[in-house]
């Protein structure tokens, strides 16, 4: 197992190099010059040439990539062009933190809602409830987030005035009870993005839970438990739920990927100062160093995530280890 993990980890830097080079090549292949974007309408071609030379933006692309790579290995991801005077790390870390907070809450919500609903549908198999729940979930999954958000904003922000129209103000507000007990209350900015993240994700979790729960229910030990006269709730909780969780490990990957990608348009639509919104702007203004750093971060996240899932899966189900090259 250890050898397997090490082998996979050794593979990570290779993937990162390939991925960043790919990104680098695409970004440079396209037309567009980041310096012109910040140079303004009155610009000075001579000075721009100088800057290009100093920043290493002229000359051989391979050499440029090499320079970037060596700097990056040493932890220097370069400087942003669209946000002058800040290193990429300085800009991205706080933004990643905001996106990560949102993402973690979104994942918790996705699984926290998906699993009970899946179990509910499985329990109600054979009645109208099961197909009703599943179809509703499918429907919710099918609505693109881009379609959902404007009506939500209209209803809750402009008509009812319950929620802010966008932005970000931390995860929690603190309510003091009697000035002594602190109760964290989710910040109102959280709800609409959370809905946007959850809708496309939790249907998948619920459906998988349902399917595995149905399979598990047919297993002998569940039948035995039932035959012993255990209550339904107990059967569900004791036997069905734990055994249905295993396949869900694989879905975490999909859910995380969904949340990461959703960040692009959810943050853009709702004006949340996270990494997704910023990177989209970076693509528009060809802020190479920001784009590269972000791809590297995302790629690392994806690879590590897959690895962790494989390892967890391997611990739970030893058969996987043998044919482990997913």
């Amino acid at each position: 197992m250890t050898a397997y993990i090490i082998r996979r980890l050794l593979w990570l830097p290779i993937i990162l190099v390939i991925v960043t080079f790919f990104t680098f090549a695409i970004a440079r292949f396209g037309p567009g010059d980041p310096l012109l974007v910040v140079a303004g309408q009155i610009r000075d071609d001579e000075v721009l040439e100088q800057i290009r030379a100093d920043r290493g933006l002229d000359g051989n692309v391979f050499e440029q990539y090499q320079t970037w790579l060596f700097d990056a290995v040493r932890g220097d991801f370069g400087e942003s062009i669209q946000q002058q005077g800040f290193t990429v790390t300085e800009i991205l870390l706080p933004k990643m933190w905001i996106s990560a907070q949102l993402g973690i809450i979104a994942i918790i919500t996705i699984f926290g809602l998906g699993i009970p609903l899946g179990l509910l549908a499985a329990r109600a198999n054979g009645t109208w409830v099961d197909p009703f729940v599943i179809s509703t979930l499918l429907f919710l999954q099918a609505i693109p987030v881009l379609v959902v958000i404007p009506p939500l904003l209209w209803l809750f922000a402009t008509q009812l005035d319950w929620l802010p129209v966008g932005g970000w103000d931390g995860l929690f507000d603190i309510w003091w009870i009697g000035g002594v007990i602190a109760v964290p209350i989710p910040d109102p900015h959280l709800y609409i993005p959370l809905v946007a993240f959850t809708l496309p994700g939790f249907a998948g979790v619920a459906r998988l839970t349902r399917i595995t729960a149905l399979e598990v229910q047919k297993e002998d030990y569940v039948r035995t438990a039932r035959a012993k006269g255990l209550s339904e709730g107990r059967v569900t909780f004791r036997h069905v739920l734990p055994n249905s969780l295993l396949p869900l490990v694989t879905v975490i990957g999909f859910a995380l990927a969904g949340v990461l990608e959703g960040a692009f348009f959810v943050e853009t639509l709702l004006g949340i100062p996270g990494i997704g919104r910023f990177v989209f702007q970076a693509v528009g203004s060809r802020d190479y160093d920001v784009i590269l750093a972000t791809t590297a971060i995302f790629a690392t996240a994806f690879v590590v995530m897959n690895l962790v899932i494989d390892i967890v899966y391997g611990f739970i189900d030893p058969r996987i280890r043998v044919g482990a090259s997913r």
Partner: peptide
């Protein structure tokens, strides 16, 4: 490699 690329970002790029 392809599945470790951030798909949407890459597509936009």
């Amino acid at each position: 490699v392809f599945s470790s690329l951030p798909g949407l970002l890459m597509l936009i790029l």
